[in-house]
């Protein structure tokens, strides 16, 4: 269904150069050859451990990082080399740390209103004020809050301000980069519910990045699992949970703590040995082979191909 597709990413790569000597250059291969698509109105979840490139991928899609190679196609247009300003109205981002992503010297009204000014969305000053107030109410804050500064709010409220800012330009697509990771459990669920409500009311499309598999599985229609810059598995969230194909997904799932003592003490857990290798010199072949319990010699030599192994269920692994 090509008309239904909002975003397509093809063979996206993002390398960060690091200087190691006078003339020597090394690269951190943060994102390596990722393919994905997102349909209109759906939520694609991205999970993986720290350093797996999920945030970099999210930012590269918005071209907050210029991709090293690959293509980003938004609504049928290749935007990899386009001017981004008109697309910033359609594509927005919510950041992880709400206190770090809000300017402490700007009032909430200025923060939320800035995008309205840049894109000239308000006809006059009173229209702008009205819009800002509406946005604040929409995210569960008070319209009087627009004159206050970010530090006067709690973490959950700050995240609401961040969301109001993203909504200010009436976007179609939002990258949610760990929007609830910094929040307390009781506040997390408030934000998750709000994101879900906004999606059903405004038909938003999300790329939801988080390391907490329970949250990602809860909110997403489909889940992509990343390991060391590679996408290792992608599929419908229930499919990925019930029939995880890739060994890494299986271990990740078994490592998630379940708040239920009987279930969590009975289940068998695959405990991975060792740590994540450095993305500066990733292992040859399949990047997971150094920790994979099923690794065969072929895994060390050959990069596994990204294949559709079941309907709409992709994975990259030799043993499948």
């Amino acid at each position: 269904m090509p008309s239904n597709e909002l975003l397509r990413v093809e063979h996206l790569k993002k390398y960060f150069p690091i200087k190691t000597g006078l003339l020597k250059h090394k690269y951190v291969q943060a994102v390596e050859d990722v393919n994905l698509f997102i349909n209109r109105g759906e939520t694609l979840g991205l999970v993986g451990e720290s350093g797996c490139g999920k945030t970099t991928l999210g930012r590269a899609i918005l071209r907050l990082h210029e991709p090293t190679a690959g293509k980003i196609i938004y609504d049928g247009v290749d935007i990899t080399h386009e001017k981004m300003l008109p697309y910033r109205r359609k594509m927005q981002i919510i950041f992880q740390d709400p206190s770090a992503s809000l300017d402490p010297r700007m009032t909430v009204g200025e923060i939320v209103g800035e995008a309205i000014d840049i894109h000239r969305l308000a006809d006059n000053k009173s229209d702008r004020t009205k819009r800002v107030q509406q946005l604040l109410i929409q995210v569960g804050l008070n319209s009087e809050h627009s004159n206050r500064y970010p530090h006067e709010f709690s973490g959950g409220q700050q995240q609401r301000i961040g969301i109001a800012r993203a909504l200010a330009v009436e976007p179609e697509f939002i990258v949610c980069d760990e929007p609830v990771s910094a929040l307390d459990v009781s506040i997390q669920s408030q934000i998750v519910n709000m994101l879900e409500d906004m999606q059903s009311e405004m038909g938003l499309t999300y790329l939801f990045i988080a390391h907490d598999l329970s949250v990602v599985k809860h909110i997403s229609n489909r889940i992509g699992v990343m390991y060391l810059g590679n996408m290792v598995e992608l599929g419908k969230s229930n499919e990925v949970y019930r029939h995880a194909l890739h060994p890494y997904t299986q271990t990740l799932l078994s490592a998630v703590p379940i708040p239920d003592p009987r279930v969590s003490r009975d289940r068998k857990r695959i405990v991975l040995q060792g740590d994540i290798p450095s993305p500066m010199n990733p292992p040859s072949g399949c990047r997971f082979h150094t920790r994979c319990p099923y690794a065969i010699p072929r895994c060390t030599e050959e990069v596994p191909e990204w294949r559709e192994l079941a309907p709409e269920h992709y994975a990259a692994c030799h043993i499948l």
Binding site: D184, V185, S186, V192, S214, K217, H218, I258, P259, D260
Partner: peptide, 25 residues
């Protein structure tokens, strides 16, 4: 009770809306 209900569980069978604890700390 609120804490337990507000947490998404990875083993939930169907999508159930979370029941948050309202208000702020």
């Amino acid at each position: 009770l609120g804490l337990l209900k507000s947490m998404p569980r990875v083993d939930e069978e169907q999508h159930e809306r979370l029941i948050p604890i309202e208000g702020t700390p």
